[in-house]
Design a binder for these strands. Structure first.
Length: 777
DNA sequence: ACAGGGGCAAGTTGG
DNA sequence: TTGCCCCTGT
């Protein structure tokens, strides 16, 4: 991973010695716009910072400046980010300016700051201060219970779907009463709205919130208790927000409430963002928030950072030309002071995704031989299913790689199990944790037993653990189960007792041992069990710095990320989304095919807005590269196990021809070259009306008309070879159907044998082809 | 109570 | 293709 240039340390040592200097050291090396953004501390400020323009540096310097000039105490600054990673990066970099800096108490994610505020005033929103924060997994299990209780068919109305809807509502700042029937009515034939009420009621019973509630309940707290809000108005003198383009409506409301302590022209709020890098619309982010900042805060100053310190002129030109195809943007143009244009961007079309993986692998090795570290190279894909082929190829090559964004540490089963034990010790009312571990490891307590426990809990209106305690005193359960439960309850009492004096990391080790969890892993012969044991050790190690169990659980529910700064030299494979904010010398952008990127689904669901978000994703991808960007498209790709062909992405056509070099490896197989040029720009008035109207398809048609017979005979061999792994697939085509083939053009199906079709093509004559190579005509 | 097989769907991700 | 969920058989 490439570290940004280190910030200059203040030469004068402690802050006091720097007071009253005219130009503090930390301002040196900033360009005029950056300096302006740092020094404009009073009033609302919008910093539009393009990719690679030193956004983080401006934010951190600004905070350092405020502290240095003693404009505010640390506790009077509120700095919010979206990710823990961004927050810790900011803390680290401020520390470089201010050696005796002890950490800003109010610097963190929206969610962690909200949680902190909520714990201080929990009783005002019907919670107890030690409330649990549920993650997505808990949330879904809770919803499943509600669906079951309401006799809603979970197949027809999946819990996950409701969770997504719920998330969307909460992102928009809607409490149960605010959800319009037109939104909620759809789910489970009109029961959606009521489910939201029931869900919230369950959360209160569990003394829990989900992530969305951290913000929503905070907003409710402020609205219903003006004196509490006023307290924070007095408290925060300066507010800063990073990645403002990613904010959703709830976050927006939260911010406005906090920022409006003073009349708008005096609110010291600084938001930093880039509308061109807004790629989380599907998650509820509203680009509109950044677009209307000047209206929200009349008199706001706007500073654009357009000087890019990262990429070559060719890369910037490509990115700028591409993003200019978007209509919804504030409009910035990146430029650089570097005179050299650098390498041109390369675009390569290959036969299929396997060849793409092969080519990328070869090129990486080539650069590696030329002395480039693997750490400086990355492959960015649109969707994670594209990673597998790359990984397989790299394993074959023995090429060291690392995948970013796989299942995260805390999402692993064994970690979640261990956490469930700890949660139950800390909060005996945590029924979700109880359900998770009651029979893990296996104790012979099955559905029947759990059902009895749940019934008792509901009737007596107590937690599952209390219900268990009660049932060990009665004859309701079979003796075997009763004994087991008695033992379990005793264990939990014991652990809770020990939790008072024992360090959390010791407690977790003892729990895992005494519960039989370690024995279970030891007995497990599968390849994974060793890794699970190591993960649990890692968990215990990460707990060493925590003195109380409560403190650790708070941390884990909000952070739950393992920052694994792996030291070894490896190529990074990750999605475009997770690459935002990073940079690499060499970037490979694979899978630039219509349907894959831009994603068909995105366009179908969100039309032009969807397409524009995809384009911003392309922009993010290109601007990750410092020296070299290599784009590729495969003519054929296996999607969900079926081979499908596709045209190169329309985004390829939107790159400036003079900054791009085209290498067409696909041509040997009858592919077509890169059309390029202004003539093949796609029709902006109607960009997603039909896939077949895109320039790629137009070119393909023109090409197949010129080419007639298609490629050399090797294709046939290739096709036959492929039919092996497709054998037995039943055909989706019928005799007489009209189809379109990438190389042979239009034709009619003459016969069908499994997945092989005999087609009479208009231009190419009779051919046998696999159905996966044709499209319905 | 629990293991194994069949059916079905499949996106990007943060807290 | 894989992975998850449900159902069935022991």
């Amino acid at each position: 991973m490439v570290e940004p240039a280190p910030l200059p340390r203040p030469a004068g040592g402690p802050i006091t010695s720097q007071l009253n200097r005219q130009v503090p050291d930390y301002l040196r090396g900033l360009n005029p716009e950056q300096k302006d953004a740092v020094m404009t501390t009073e009033g609302p400020l919008l910093v539009l910072a393009g990719a690679g323009t030193g956004k983080t540096r401006v934010l951190t310097t600004r905070i350092a400046h405020i502290l240095n000039q003693r404009m505010a105490w640390e506790s009077q600054i509120l700095a919010v980010t979206f990710t823990n990673k961004a927050a810790s990066e900011m803390k680290k970099r401020i520390h470089e300016f201010v050696p005796n800096f002890e950490g800003l108490p109010w610097m963190g994610t929206f969610h962690s700051v909200s949680a902190r505020i909520l714990r201080a005033h929990a009783e005002l929103v019907d919670l107890k201060p030690q409330f649990t924060i549920l993650d997505t997994d808990d949330q879904i299990r809770l919803i499943k219970q509600l669906l079951a209780a309401d006799n809603i068919d979970e197949k027809r109305w999946p819990a996950r779907q409701f969770a997504n809807m719920l998330d969307g509502w909460k992102n928009r700042g809607w409490l149960p009463k605010d959800v319009p029937a037109s939104e909620s009515g759809y789910f489970a034939n009109g029961k959606g709205g009521q489910l939201y009420y029931d869900y919230q009621a369950r959360l209160k019973t569990l003394n829990a919130t989900d992530f969305g509630d951290l913000l929503l309940e905070c907003i409710r707290l402020f609205l219903e208790n003006p004196e509490v809000l006023a307290e924070y108005h007095r408290k925060f003198k300066y507010m800063l927000v990073d990645e403002y383009q990613d904010s959703n409506t709830a976050q927006y409301l939260w911010l406005r409430l906090l920022a409006q302590g003073k009349p708008a022209p005096e609110a010291n709020i600084c938001v930093v963002g880039d509308d061109d890098q807004s790629i989380y619309g599907w998650r509820g982010a509203e680009v509109d928030n950044i677009l209307r900042f000047e209206k929200d805060f009349p008199g706001a100053k706007v500073i654009k950072l357009e000087r890019n310190y990262r990429s070559t002129a060719n890369i910037l030109k490509a990115a700028s030309t591409l993003i200019a195809f978007n209509e919804d943007r504030l409009g910035k143009t990146l430029h650089t002071d570097i005179a050299e244009a650098g390498e041109t961007i390369s675009f390569t079309q290959v036969y299929d995704s396997e060849e793409e993986a092969r080519t990328v692998g070869e090129e990486i090795e080539q650069y590696q031989r030329a002395g480039e570290p693997l750490n400086s190279m990355a492959i960015l894909v649109r969707a994670s299913f594209q990673m597998r082929e790359l990984e397989e190829r790299f394993i074959t090559l023995g090429l060291n790689y690392r995948v970013v964004g796989g299942p995260r540490f805390y999402e692993r089963k064994e970690i979640r199990d261990a956490l469930a034990y700890l949660r139950l010790v800390a909060q005996p009312a945590d029924d979700l944790a109880f359900e998770r571990i009651i029979n893990v490891p296996k104790r012979g307590l099955g559905d029947t037993t759990v059902k009895t426990l749940m019934e008792t809990a509901r009737h007596q209106n107590v937690s599952l653990l209390s219900a268990t305690r009660m049932l060990t005193e009665t004859e309701e359960l079979k003796p075997k189960q009763r004994t087991t439960l008695r033992g379990l309850v005793d264990q939990f009492d014991n652990w809770a007792y020990r939790a008072e004096n024992l360090a959390p990391y010791q407690l977790v080790e003892q729990i895992l041992e005494e519960s039989g969890y370690m024995d279970m892993l030891a007995a497990d012969k599968s390849a994974e069990s060793q890794g699970r044991k190591e993960n649990l050790k890692e968990l215990s190690r990460s707990m060493e710095e925590f003195e109380s169990l409560g403190g650790f659980l708070e941390h884990i529910s909000l952070v739950m990320d393992r920052d694994s700064a792996e030291a070894s030299d490896a190529v990074t494979i990750m999605t475009l989304h997770s690459a935002k904010g990073l940079e690499f010398n060499t970037v490979f952008l694979t899978g630039w095919e219509e349907g894959t990127f831009p994603s068909q689904r995105s366009m179908d669901e969100n039309g032009r807005a969807g397409l524009e978000e995809e384009r911003r994703l392309a922009y993010v991808g290109i601007t990750r590269g410092r020296k070299r960007v290599r784009i590729s498209a495969a003519q054929n790709r296996r999607i969900h196990g079926l081979w499908q062909s596709a045209m190169p992405s329309r985004f390829v056509d939107e790159l400036p021809p003079d900054a791009v070099t085209v290498t067409d490896r696909g041509s040997a197989y009858g592919g077509y070259g890169y059309g390029g040029g202004a003539t093949s720009r796609f029709n902006k008035a109607d960009p997603f009306e039909s896939l077949y109207e895109t320039p790629g398809w137009q070119r393909a048609r023109a090409n197949q008309a010129n080419r007639k017979g298609g490629g050399p005979m090797t294709i046939e061999g290739e096709l036959v070879a492929r039919s092996v792994d497709l054998g037995g697939q039943s055909s989706g085509y019928t005799v007489g159907e009209r189809v379109f083939h990438l190389k042979f053009g239009y034709g009619d199906v003459k016969s069908v044998e499994g997945n092989k079709l005999t087609i009479e093509f208009e231009k190419a004559g009779m051919k046998k082809v696999l159905e996966s190579f044709v499209q319905k005509g």
